[in-house]
Simulated assay, not measured.
Amino acid sequence: MRYIIIGSGAIGGSIGGRLHESGQSVVLVARGAHFEALRDNGLRFTVPTGTLTLDVPVVARPEDVELRADDVLVLAVKTQDSVAALDTWAARPVAGGGTAGERIPLVCAQNGVENERLALRRFREVYGMCVILPSSHLNPGEVVAPCGPYTGALVIGRYATGTDDTARRIADDLEKACFLAPVASDVMRWKYGKLLGNLANVVEAVCGSASDATAQDLVARAKAEGAAVLDAAGIAYAGEAEITELRSGTVDLQPIAGERARGSSWQSLARGTGSIETDYLNGEIVLLGREHGVPTPVNATLQHAARESVRRQREPGGLTAEELSRRIAEGITE
């Protein structure tokens, strides 16, 4: 199997880098300065045991790689970029006939729960992946993954339910590449559980940190709303204790000099990417709340604050937790 990693930032770079290091065939897909740095200098991949320089093949466009029947596409872009990527890759021809959408499995290694539905409109074989992989990508050509002894936990299964030989083969390759990779028939239950945890991302991003008491209160209230919404919708989700048990002693943060673990939304604001995935995290809870008649003022306010931060080109820390709490109390959500 050859792995085509679509989006080679923090998550894609970590997965692609580890697979390449373990001897698997990998192609990274990147763009702009990141592509140029990977092409010219390789992937600078920092883990607790040191920094690796990995000469992973990299392309800038789908047209630059000839797809074959034994490929696996790993989608690792943010959800707001999924449709454009899926439309482009699904139509690509595969050696021997047919298109990628018809013949090649696609794995959604992404936060949120919308990507799989988007993918299944375009690909016959779609696999969900619950990604528990603290990592960062702030500079071109560089990815930092500060966990050990496993780099991350990647729960994989068919979408919407089930397992098969392809999922097990991918999991086997990931296990050989320093990942914990359970195969689950209910992968979306894991992804909904991870969604609740990701509701904290925007607090860290907008406030710069989620460590003080007021920020922690916001996080707790956002998660409580999320759980209430999922319960009302009848959606099963892995509990926080279950996720903690999965990673405890296996995917533990380990100190790396000069590095500090930051969430993906914080990184989006810090890098000035011009977008943020909050609409598909907190916004998913807002959407489900509206569908099932459950008020979600905390998540709606956080969603709005994220949009505002992107629109005004704020860096992390542009708003305080106290200001967000005031907006919630005053009903400022639009």
Rank of each mutant, 00 (worst) to 15 (best):
A76K: 04
V72C: 09
L86H: 06
L86M: 15
L73T: 03
D87Y: 09
A85K: 11
G98V: 03
D87V: 08
A95T: 13
R92A: 15
G97D: 05
T99H: 11
G101W: 10
L86W: 10
D70M: 01
T88M: 12
A90I: 04
D70A: 08
A100G: 07
G98W: 09
A90S: 15
V77N: 02
P93K: 04
A69C: 01
A90T: 01
A100F: 04
P93F: 05
S82R: 00
A91T: 11
W89A: 07
D87T: 10
G96Y: 08
Q80K: 06
W89T: 08
I104F: 01
G97R: 10
I104L: 15
V74N: 03
V83R: 14
G96H: 09
L73S: 03
L86I: 14
D81L: 13
S82K: 02
A69N: 03
R92K: 14
Q80M: 09
R92Y: 00
R92C: 15
G96P: 07
D70H: 10
A84E: 15
R103M: 04
W89D: 06
Q80D: 13
A76F: 02
E102L: 12
A69D: 13
P105W: 12
R68M: 06
T99A: 06
A76Q: 02
A95Y: 00
W89L: 12
I104M: 03
V83W: 00
V94S: 08
V94K: 08
A76P: 06
T88D: 14
A69Y: 03
Q80L: 06
L75S: 10
P93C: 12
L73V: 09
D87W: 09
V94Q: 09
K78Y: 00
D70L: 02
S82V: 14
R92G: 00
A95L: 12
V72G: 00
A95D: 14
R68D: 13
D81P: 00
R103Y: 01
D71L: 02
V94T: 06
L75A: 07
D70C: 04
V74R: 05
T88N: 08
A95V: 11
L75H: 01
R103W: 06
G98F: 08
V77Q: 08
R68E: 14
V74A: 06
A100Q: 10
A90R: 13
G97L: 07
E102M: 05
R68S: 13
G97Y: 11
L73G: 05
V74S: 03
L73I: 09
G96V: 04
A90E: 12
L75Y: 01
A76S: 15
V72Q: 02
A84K: 14
L73P: 03
L86Q: 13
I104V: 14
L86E: 14
P93A: 11
L75P: 07
A90Y: 12
A90G: 10
L73F: 05
D71S: 02
E102C: 06
D71R: 02
V83I: 13
A84M: 13
W89H: 03
D70I: 00
R103A: 10
A90N: 10
T99P: 12
G96A: 10
D81E: 14
W89C: 03
E102T: 05
V72T: 12
D71P: 06
V74Q: 07
R92F: 00
K78A: 06
V83H: 02
R68F: 07
D81C: 08
G98S: 07
S82Q: 07
V77E: 02
A69R: 14
V94M: 09
R68H: 13
D70R: 04
A100D: 07
